[in-house]
Amino acid sequence: MEFIALAQSLARSAGALILSRMGEQVTAEEKSSAFDVVTQVDKDCEQLIREGILSQHLDHEILGEEDTFLAQKSLEEVLSAVKKDTYLWIVDPIDGTSNFVQGIAGFTVSIALAYNGELLLGVVYDPSCDEMFSAVKGEGAFLNGKPIHVSNKTGLHTSVIATGFPSQMDARLAVYNGLGKLIHECRTIRSLGSAARHLAYVGAGRLDGFWENGLKTWDVAAGVLIVQEAGGQVSDTNGNSYSLNTLHIVSTNGLVHESLLDCLK
């Protein structure tokens, strides 16, 4: 697909911009709460990606995390306003802003493209280690151009599961409840600070599963397609199929999906 090269190029450019600002005195501004922050680097990266897309595809729509917040519109409002038969780019310029602010590696650039609500491509780029995860619908998933596949673990007791801690307190409490149950069932639990990175790692077989409540489309869209194209499974916490409106994500290698869902009920 012609769009994947554009997505990868823009992700690399945004990653280079982020790395160039590492070590600077970065001010983290609160958004919806003290747990939800943004920096000028987030805004600059989103603008870079937006301009890059519109310079080649002026008729495409863009759903960016920072622009959506500034417009004070809900995700549902933005998605419902997107016209049918329109390409929609879904952008998270820095997924893992708290990692970036703290100087911790593991933040990512996430770019996806959807058409009529169906994901067509996804790119998750980790500039700290120059890892480009990508997928095009029907063509498989890749890491730096090499095919990847989900793990073959069949039980939670041997699985490494990841989660994150969302900014909304009710969603955060739901994650804590899941932790209380899951800690007795799986080998160990990790939290790497970026939902997109967690999903990419499920696709690459580094993690066997991931769940988190209260996520938005820009956090997960690219990673969802990477997992699916790598042979994994993605649903909401009730087991329903993923859609762009899904807020509570469960992603696994497919083999431990039902077991993970049972723990989270």
Rank of each mutant, 00 (worst) to 15 (best):
L10S: 01
R12K: 15
S13V: 01
A14N: 03
G15M: 00
G15E: 05
G15T: 04
G15C: 00
A16G: 14
L17M: 11
I18R: 02
L19W: 09
L19F: 13
S20I: 09
S20K: 09
R21G: 02
R21V: 04
R21S: 06
R21C: 05
M22T: 09
M22A: 10
G23M: 10
G23H: 11
G23Q: 12
G23K: 03
G23Y: 06
G23E: 08
E24L: 15
E24D: 15
E24Q: 13
E24K: 11
Q25Y: 12
Q25S: 15
Q25C: 12
V26T: 11
V26A: 10
A28W: 09
E29A: 14
E29S: 15
E30R: 13
E30I: 14
K31H: 03
S32Y: 14
S32M: 14
S33R: 10
D36S: 12
V37I: 11
V37S: 05
T39H: 02
T39S: 08
V41R: 00
V41E: 01
D42V: 00
K43R: 12
K43G: 08
K43Y: 05
D44C: 11
D44V: 09
C45W: 04
C45G: 08
C45D: 07
C45V: 03
E46L: 00
L48W: 07
L48N: 04
L48E: 11
I49R: 03
I49E: 06
I49F: 08
R50G: 10
R50C: 09
E51T: 13
E51C: 12
E51S: 12
E51N: 08
G52A: 02
I53G: 05
I53K: 03
L54A: 00
L54E: 00
S55G: 07
H57C: 01
L58T: 08
D59L: 00
D59E: 02
D59S: 00
H60D: 05
H60W: 08
H60I: 05
E61M: 00
L63E: 03
L63M: 05
E65C: 10
E66V: 02
E66P: 03
T68A: 07
L70I: 14
Q72I: 09
Q72K: 15
Q72T: 11
Q72E: 11
K73P: 00
K73L: 05
S74W: 12
S74Q: 13
L75I: 08
E76Y: 08
